[in-house]
Design a protein around this nucleic acid. Structure first.
Lengths: 227, 227
DNA sequence: TCAAAAGTGTTGTCCGTACACCCATGA
DNA sequence: TCATGGGTGTACGGACAACACTTTTGA
């Protein structure tokens, strides 16, 4: 029993990604206490004793963003003995994709060791605490590998969207431009979109056809999609 | 400080796979104590307090098989609160591929709660302890996804081998037959093999050309290969 | 009528797959 | 000489990439 006091602490850390202001961005929290005072960190927390790992990640996500029912993917577990300065902490890293406009940041919670909480472009990260730079880097690699294979962008779009919006989302994730005709051909061949009769009047130019993800896709995405 | 006695135990479990007797096989240990007396389990052990996760997996692998310097891949972390009957144990699962002929099983170690240790076909598993069936299933899925993309079979072959041996290894992993001409065309196009002047006299028929993985591949595989 | 974004097809290349016969050797 | 496994090439189809012009609307 004594040796239990020697066991490790275990946390979950969640890399929360969004596309916002034409950039892939990650939600970061600025620490208000040592260690790593003023450095930025991805949201995380201890796993409760009778809480599943996935449930812990969902709880952390909800505590920081008030967003529920988002699909989370387990990425990797980090346990270098020196990654935490004071004690041995092993962390199970998760990745979530959310729409930034459906999110009220839990800014009210600043104070309890939290100085600030906000989005940062993944291409221009502030100084990060712990090994969080490495974790974010894993998350982006994972996302890019999966977005090509599996239609994951639906997490980032409203229910109705134009093909151009969808394409821009992919371009932000992959950080490269895509050919419009090829993109449309490919995405329509997947038969996961429903063409709506409505059109978007957002732009002041020619209206664009709206689409939604179809019922079959939405019903089956949990089993077919890792992210 | 009191709450540290409430933290989780953390283990690594290693799915050790080989190709043997024309089958994909996994190394299992038969438990000699409760819980799960007589059930079979994959090798595992607690992570030491100042030991990296990967190092813990290497240690467990070496303790059970006396095999060193094998590339291990972290698969997934399992932490369902009910996966262990008595306490909360979170386990980081790894996967290793080894040649079964370079292995002396640590049979001497039977006794300390270990009744038996041996290879089992993954297609005919005995009753397994804990959630180890799920872990093995993850490992096989992972292996199949990666063997197609990345040349991982070198772990399973001697230094010199024939193309037929290489093909058989892939067939065992994928559990399906491959076309000889297509297989050779593809594998030779990767430019990772060196054709040797020697031939194999193993079979009693026409001798087969021997190949080895070339220096470039062996030098770079750590960075290019996940498994 | 002009500016701006929407929408639309064809071609070449590469990769994977299907498929059948001759060769070298030992028994 | 024959049985056995070793070794080789071609033709088709699908996926991806490159590429430019017309349409619709609001200002």
């Amino acid at each position: 029993m004594y040796q239990e006091t020697k066991t490790h602490e275990v946390t979950v850390d969640v890399v929360i990604l969004t596309v916002r202001n034409k950039k892939l961005q990650v939600l970061l929290i600025q620490r208000g206490q040592e260690p790593f005072m003023d450095k930025w960190a991805i949201p995380g927390g201890f796993i409760r004793l009778s809480e599943d790992l996935d449930a812990a990640a969902e709880r952390v996500l909800e505590e920081k963003t008030h967003v529920k029912n988002v699909h989370l993917s387990q990425l990797h577990t980090f346990g270098n003995p020196t990654r935490y300065p004071k004690s041995r902490v092993i962390t199970v890293a998760y990745c979530a994709l959310i729409r930034s406009d459906e999110l009220e940041l839990a800014s009210a919670e600043t104070g309890m060791g939290i100085k600030d909480i906000k989005w940062h472009s993944v291409y221009n990260l502030p100084p990060l605490a712990y090994d969080h730079k490495e974790i974010i880097s894993h998350a982006i690699t994972y996302l890019r590998e999966n977005v090509e294979q599996k239609p994951v962008a639906f997490q980032l779009l409203p229910k109705k969207f134009t093909l151009t919006q969808l394409q821009k989302t992919y371009e932000m994730i992959l950080n490269k431009e895509l050919d419009k005709r090829n993109f449309r051909k490919k995405i329509l061949s997947y038969i996961i979109l429903t063409e709506l009769t409505e059109v978007s009047k957002e732009g002041s130019k020619r209206p664009a056809r709206l689409y939604s993800f179809n019922k079959f896709f939405l019903d089956n995405r949990q089993s077919k999609t890792n992210l």
